[in-house]
Design a protein around this nucleic acid. Structure first.
Lengths: 107, 107
DNA sequence: TATTATAATCGTAATATTGCAATATTAAAT
DNA sequence: ATTTAATATTGCAATATTACGATTATAATA
């Protein structure tokens, strides 16, 4: 008990839920938006910008990374994070399709 | 500890996270899709269709209802659930805007 | 009124998420 | 080699989520 029964759902439904989960926390929404607004991607001040402790931000970044939405490279001691444009467009499409699929003809 | 610090985020970020959370579980994705595919909305067989226990489905329905995505009316002993079209379009717009806002110009 | 069918609610167990202090790691700078 | 700065990892506490059995509520039907 307590665990999502992923095996009873379709891969498509599981996939959509997984990516939705990334956006299901305001910190991650804010992080994604902030990173996207940077010229480059030296995101040193993310901790200060968001207002959560450094380990917490690090964890959230990791969650975003796990679904493939972030690309990170080290530039010296600084980490250069940026959004994976391909994956982002893929997500946009997944959501858009889902929203379009829902045609209700009742009530 | 353990609770999301909603007060440090903007209303927009909190709102987006809230609706994303609804789609952050495959059962709710499946439920939304199933309801949308019905002619009317006699969703009696939702439990059988999804494969989770009745109280669990009821809970998920309630989560969806809480963000205003479902309209429910009783038709005799059967509950008639259907998607709130207006709210649905609103959500689609919220997500679409967010995806569009992300313009990364790095990496 | 008693029965039946359907859905909500309650209570509870298992697990996941959120957040942070402490610590470790990494690499640049001194 | 030490220090410094940035990020990751660990460990843990608080809270949220997921799931379901048992029960309750509601209304149609016999």
């Amino acid at each position: 008990m307590g665990t999502t029964k992923a095996h009873i759902f379709s891969p498509r439904h599981n996939e959509l839920a997984k990516v939705a989960k990334v956006m299901a926390h305001p910190a991650r929404v804010a992080i994604l938006e902030y990173i996207s607004k940077q010229q480059g991607c030296i995101c040193t001040d993310l901790v200060e910008e968001i207002g959560l402790a450094q380990p917490t931000i690090s964890q959230h970044l990791n969650e975003i990374k796990k679904v493939g939405l972030l690309e990170g490279t080290f530039e010296g001691k600084n980490l250069c994070y940026c959004i994976n444009r391909e994956k982002w467009l893929e997500l946009q499409h997944v959501f858009n399709s889902f929203f379009s699929v829902i045609h209700q003809n009742c009530c």
